[in-house]
Amino acid sequence: MLTGIHAAFIGGDARQLEVIKKFIELDAAVTLIGFDNWESNFTGAVKRPLSADVLRDVDALILPIVGSDDKGYVESIFCSKPLQLTEELLTVLPSRCCIYTGMARSFLRNMAALHNLSLQEFLNRDDVAIYNSIPTVEGALMMAIQNTDFTIHNSISLVLGLGRVGLSMARVLHALGAHVRVGARKSADLARIFEMGLTPFHIDELSQHVDDADLIFNTIPHLVITAKVIANMQHHALIIDLASKPGGTDFRYAEKRGIKAILAPGLPGIVAPKTAGQITANILSRLVFEQMVNGRNQNGSQG
């Protein structure tokens, strides 16, 4: 339970609604900022404008997955007015408050460091990334089916990277009957790929493995599908780049060659916002609960 915790939510998309529901169920006091156009009302939550007065007694400040931009602006699909966090607003947060976001850009990180604010970025946690790999893989499969005229079964499918998403992607493609090749750098990852019954190759040798590829799923967040690689691909091949922007594909050259390449980051929030929101809600409620317990322990030891 989060009884006694004041959580303020600033902006967000459909995923944030699931987090809000969870916090209300756990008896937190919930303030919603930037939800003016949300027609339904949450019983147990109060809508307020963004102001210093609202933030003075907040225990947990919860931002959208993408946090804010480099000027402090926070996106909200439920508000037509711009929401901007400023240094003046953040400095009124009590010392016990923690800011939670999926990822933080320079503005939030700089403000946290400058004013000794507690900031937690949860998107890169192993548990979050593994849970999110499920809707990511489903979304990638949906895109592959929508953009090809052949089955995934019996296709030659390449997965680049054996991280949390790459591992799930390779496993599901194999289960669907694809001939799966996985590119990685680490010798341990290459051994794991072999153990899974898939075909491993070093990522530096990618250009040698794409000449007959039907589908390529990239999870590596830097340029790996270069012009040299694309030059060796067949025209019917499809690239689905799941890495964060700008991805790991030379999209300009792919277009020049007539090869379809799709940048598809953030698929959980697009294809399954309810599930993605529930994943976030479970993780955030646990983190805030731990914050509450740690705060009580510190107060007890000080007393």
Rank of each mutant, 00 (worst) to 15 (best):
P82R: 09
L83T: 04
R48Y: 07
L83E: 04
I62E: 08
A60D: 01
S80H: 11
F42I: 08
D57S: 11
V58K: 07
V66Y: 12
G34I: 08
T43P: 13
D70Q: 15
Y73R: 12
S51N: 03
G67S: 05
E39W: 13
V66Q: 15
N41G: 13
R48L: 13
L63R: 09
V46L: 01
D70P: 11
V54C: 11
L63Y: 03
G72F: 09
Y73T: 15
F35G: 05
L50W: 01
K71W: 14
V58Q: 02
F78G: 09
F78L: 04
S51K: 05
G67N: 01
I33W: 01
V74H: 09
D57C: 04
L83K: 00
C79Y: 13
L50N: 03
D53G: 05
V58S: 06
K81I: 09
P49S: 02
N41E: 15
L83R: 03
S68L: 04
F78A: 06
V54Y: 08
D57K: 11
P64D: 03
V66C: 12
V74T: 06
S40Y: 04
F35Y: 15
D36E: 12
S51Y: 04
D53V: 12
V46Q: 01
D59R: 00
A60T: 07
S80M: 10
F78I: 05
L63T: 04
D69K: 06
L83W: 00
L55G: 10
R48H: 11
S76Y: 00
K71E: 15
I33A: 05
K81A: 10
S80R: 10
P49M: 06
V74P: 00
I33D: 05
G72Q: 07
L63G: 07
V74F: 05
L50I: 01
R56S: 12
R48E: 14
L32E: 07
P64R: 02
N37L: 15
D70V: 14
S40E: 13
L32D: 03
S80P: 06
G34W: 10
D70H: 14
T43N: 14
D69C: 11
D59P: 06
L61A: 08
R56W: 06
K81S: 12
L50F: 04
L32F: 09
P64K: 02
K47Q: 13
I62Y: 03
G67P: 10
A45E: 04
L32S: 01
W38S: 08
D36G: 06
D53Y: 05
I65E: 00
W38P: 07
A45D: 08
D69I: 06
L83C: 02
I65Q: 01
K47V: 14
S68N: 00
G72Y: 06
G44H: 03
W38M: 11
I77R: 15
V46I: 08
S76P: 01
V74L: 09
G67I: 07
V66K: 13
I62N: 09
G67K: 07
G44I: 04
K81P: 10
N41M: 12
K71T: 15
G67Y: 01
V54R: 07
D70F: 11
D69H: 02
K71C: 14
